[in-house]
């Protein structure tokens, strides 16, 4: 192979690699690679240098920005987010733009959300029906690390007072209705079941999923720092970093039009996430979903398994079973009764 042919081949490989990256075909390999490397680092198989990469970032309460940062930038950005500024400046040599700071904040929050700590969130869903009436439901979301989540959804109508439990891990998903069989399957099957359900109006969320979508599909903008509950600052209600994301026009249209995030200044943990749909949207009448951090609490060992949410023996059905997909809950209520039930409940 002569020099010209080598150059042509290299150019061909470059374009091939760029096309694969443009199409996102490398994502799985990249994520796997990053995951494995981080696991090795966490396990201490690769000792880090004693010197911290960015000493300013290691402690959030920095005394000031390094002197080389442009004065304009340091005037614009509150000291409370100086750590993120340092980070954002490191991320790019194109200069420091507010959207990069916002992006770094969301990434930091994503990292915090992926930590294997059991966290409890309250999920409040505001809906609007065809007549313009609004309703609200309060759910509980429990998450553990990157891929385990359990949602408690209180039922309405004749099943008021009972809960539906939904759970999902990396490779499986389950639904535990108050009565009848338990469903098992995978994530996509759970998603389809939820789409078919007329009784569950809560979007199935994992904090990491929301943050990941926010990072990838939204134009991010930093907002002035505030507490998550718009209330005076206390230990329980600290000042948070705020970022709002506006859905990019290429993103799926059924996603929220905006996602607003409040993150803990020190840890990056998401304290509040607010998702809004535009008024003209008919996404099951959802207008707003608020995810609020409640606390970090010890949970039963089997909390993230279906068995942790029912007693006695129950029939377990495959979620991908077509018959199961056509039923809301398998408590053998005829469809006609169910429709009556829905009209009684005012949903």
């Amino acid at each position: 192979m002569n020099e010209r042919e080598r150059q042509d081949e290299l150019q061909d490989r470059l374009v091939d690699a760029l096309l694969l990256a443009a199409a996102g075909q490398q994502r799985a390999e990249v994520e796997t690679g990053i995951g494995q490397v981080l696991q090795r680092i966490e396990a201490g198989l690769d000792d880090s240098p004693m010197t911290v990469l960015l000493p300013e970032v290691a402690t959030a309460e920095v005394s000031g920005l390094p002197p080389r940062f442009p004065g304009r930038v340091s005037r614009l950005i509150p000291w409370s987010i100086a750590a993120t500024v340092v980070l954002a400046l490191t991320l790019s040599y194109q200069g420091c733009s507010p959207d990069r700071i916002a992006r770094a904040a969301v990434t930091q929050s994503l990292v915090a959300a992926a930590q294997p700590v059991p966290r409890h969130y309250r999920v409040t869903v505001n809906r609007r029906d065809a007549a313009g009436r609004t309703s609200e439901s309060a759910n509980d979301l429990y998450v553990l690390g990157n891929d385990q989540a359990v949602l408690r959804h209180p039922l309405a109508g004749r099943r008021a007072g009972f809960d539906l439990w939904l759970g999902k891990s990396a490779d499986s998903a389950w639904i535990v209705p108050p009565f009848g069989p338990v469903f098992r399957g995978d994530g996509p099957a759970l998603g389809k079941w939820l789409e078919a359900s007329t009784e569950v109006d809560t979007p199935y969320l994992h904090v990491t999923t929301v943050l990941d979508r926010m990072k990838r599909g939204y134009r991010l903008q930093e907002l002035p720092s505030d507490t998550a509950h718009h209330a005076p600052v206390t230990d329980e209600n600290p000042v948070c970093r705020r970022v709002i994301g506006h859905r990019r026009w290429l993103a799926q249209q059924n996603l929220p039009s905006t996602i607003e995030l409040w993150t803990d200044l020190k840890t990056g943990m998401a304290r509040r996430i607010e998702l809004r749909w535009p008024p003209e949207s008919d996404q099951r009448g959802r207008e707003r979903v608020i995810v609020e951090w409640v606390g970090e609490e010890p949970l039963a060992e089997d909390w993230f398994e279906a068995a942790g949410h029912y007693s006695g023996s129950r029939l377990v059905l495959d979620l991908s079973d077509r018959r199961a997909m056509t039923r809301d809950f398998v408590d053998d209520i005829p469809v006609a009764d169910r429709e009556n039930n829905e009209s009684e409940s005012g949903d």
Binding site: A17, V30, I34, A60, T107
Partner: peptide
């Protein structure tokens, strides 16, 4: 935020580019 977290953020920011390279 510790060095590992900062490292992860930097890596995630540049991982696709590195893979293509």
């Amino acid at each position: 935020m510790d060095a590992r977290q900062v490292f992860e953020i930097l890596v995630r920011e540049h991982a696709d580019m590195l893979w293509a390279y």
